[in-house]
Design a protein around this nucleic acid. Structure first.
Lengths: 137, 137
DNA sequence: CAGCATCCCCGCAGATACTG
DNA sequence: CAGTATCTGCGGGGATGCTG
């Protein structure tokens, strides 16, 4: 059916060529990695609620370093998913919000997060069973 | 929504064990990182079509090393998302398939992949505009 | 406040060799 | 075929200090 097959088919096709991990990757894979990245996921979900200022976002996420948040926001802004609004005031004030494109991505990501939250208990049980089975040999 | 990343304590750290990915974090975050991981995403989407044998999956994805595929599959199996069926024959034959839980996750992930594919062009245009704006200073 | 620049560690991930 | 075991690099990402 599936576009998913087509999608991964493209990945495979890319692999057949002169693909190298560190170098240029196809745009599709890149945007996917950006939105599924460690901090990208959390930023998108936060911004789905409302716009945030930089350090407000930092506090909301809680474990992200300033460097990684900056880097993540720049990547998402470059991909056209996040809008950066720097106000020329002192002290500086910068608001981040989702673009229409970013909102689409964020809603997909939120679906994933909601699933993870809902099924977390079952996953934990599965882990315990797996570990117990391994432990007994 | 809340995406608190506060550490839940030593229990989480110890439970993660050798499967720890990066820093210590709550189980919810862990599942999310597993399914959004570089190879986890591709494995889940591939398995959405049908069961795969190990090296069949390796060829289908195309760029994944044997080591990373093994590691990814073990993580997803431990989380109860992937079922491993090792047949006692020579030469060995191992089939991987999605569990019901895994299928739910995979469908969410596919949604993300489909979005990325559909909007890839717009993202590329956004990147060009961003780079052009930066280039002009 | 919102970043940028720099240093540096460690763990992800690739390469290689070996086994049941 | 489907893995394990081991070595190694290099880059992700944290810590720190500085700027507009």
């Amino acid at each position: 059916m599936t576009v998913s097959t087509e999608v991964t088919g493209k990945v495979a096709a890319e692999a057949a060529g002169k693909y190298t991990v560190g170098a240029v990757m196809c745009p599709y894979r890149l945007v996917l990695e950006h939105v599924t990245s460690r901090w990208g996921v959390l930023v998108l979900i936060e911004l789905l609620d409302r716009p945030y200022r930089f350090s407000e976002l930092r506090r909301a996420i809680g474990t992200v370093s300033e460097k990684m948040l900056t880097q993540t926001l720049q990547t998402l802004e470059r991909d056209g998913l996040v809008h950066r609004d720097a106000k020329p005031v002192i002290p500086p004030r910068v608001d981040y919000s989702l673009t229409d494109l970013g909102r689409e991505a964020a809603e997909q990501v939120r679906g994933l997060a909601l699933w993870a939250e809902a099924r977390m208990g079952e996953v934990e049980k599965a882990r315990e069973m797996y570990d117990a089975a391994k432990g007994r040999g």
